[in-house]
Simulated assay, not measured.
Amino acid sequence: MLGVVAGVCTGYVVQAGREPDPLPPLAQQKVGQAKDTKAPVALSAAEDHRVKTDGDLRKLLVPRPAGTQKSGGVQGWVDQYGYAGDYKEPGRMFADLSDDSFRRSAVTEWKKGQSTTEVHLIQFRDTEKLSSRNFLSGQLTYMSDSEWAGNGGEPVPGSSNARVYVFDHPRTEAGYLPLYEARALGARGDIVMDLWFFDTKPIPKKTAMALAKRQLERL
């Protein structure tokens, strides 16, 4: 056995002392560098979506229309507790936002006569999963229930996921005027838009649709 091992070692020594055999011609051909190649051009701030969405989220909120006044509600930043507090089950919503990697939220509100409009932008950390789409899907799921809009809504042109819902029936309570509602939901990038419309008279679908399109264009 020792002789076999010694013979193998000797073979390695001899091989090591030889000049390497030339490679086939094809393998020896040099690959030339492409001529006139230009270095990649960095995207401008206007072209880079992350520059826009990682900045001040409040600046992406659609501007308050002329002829309207600020409402008495919250304006600007809203933390996770504040956003969840607007729901019927705030504890459950807070937990859902945590599961969906809530990042931050901003809101603007305005009124005109008896009508009030709320615009919410909710941003998520879409790193390990598409949390923004998961949250949007959860909100869209129950909108067709009779307790809510009572219909399937209408898609917003130019978006693959946004929908506008005009509620079939107003909410009524003795001693109060009827409350008509509409809602628009959609997502672009890691941001979900959530628009609410309230009025004491029916809300035209075109009004909600126009604002939803304007807000999506800013994302």
Rank of each mutant, 00 (worst) to 15 (best):
S159R: 03
T10C: 14
G138T: 04
R18L: 13
D100T: 02
C9L: 15
P90L: 06
I191H: 01
P178E: 12
E109T: 14
R50D: 10
G186W: 03
K111H: 08
L61W: 07
G55W: 09
L130I: 00
L26A: 14
Y142C: 14
L23Q: 13
L97H: 03
K52A: 15
D99R: 12
G152I: 03
M143E: 05
G32K: 10
A95P: 01
Q75N: 08
H120S: 05
R171L: 12
P155A: 12
K88I: 06
V31H: 04
R125Q: 08
S160Q: 13
L216P: 05
G32E: 13
P170Y: 11
G91I: 03
A182I: 02
A66S: 13
A46G: 00
P90D: 06
W110Y: 10
K205F: 07
R163I: 06
A106W: 00
D96K: 13
D48Q: 06
E217F: 03
Q123T: 02
K129F: 11
A27T: 10
R103D: 11
G186P: 05
R58D: 10
Y165R: 07
D54V: 05
L195D: 05
M193K: 02
M143I: 02
A84H: 09
T53L: 05
E217Y: 03
G73S: 08
S115I: 09
G158T: 04
P63R: 02
K213W: 00
S137G: 15
P22R: 09
L136E: 01
S105V: 01
M193F: 13
T200C: 09
P202N: 08
K52E: 09
M1L: 03
F167Y: 15
R125K: 13
D96Y: 07
K206F: 01
L179T: 06
Q69R: 09
A42C: 01
E89I: 01
R171S: 10
L185F: 12
G153L: 07
K201R: 13
A27Y: 11
G11S: 08
A212R: 11
R214Y: 01
L219D: 06
H49A: 12
P22G: 04
D168Q: 13
Y142A: 13
E128K: 15
A210L: 06
G175P: 07
A212L: 07
V51Q: 03
R171Q: 12
V166S: 02
G32S: 11
P202G: 09
G32T: 10
L136A: 04
K112G: 04
L60N: 06
S137N: 15
A39L: 10
G7Q: 04
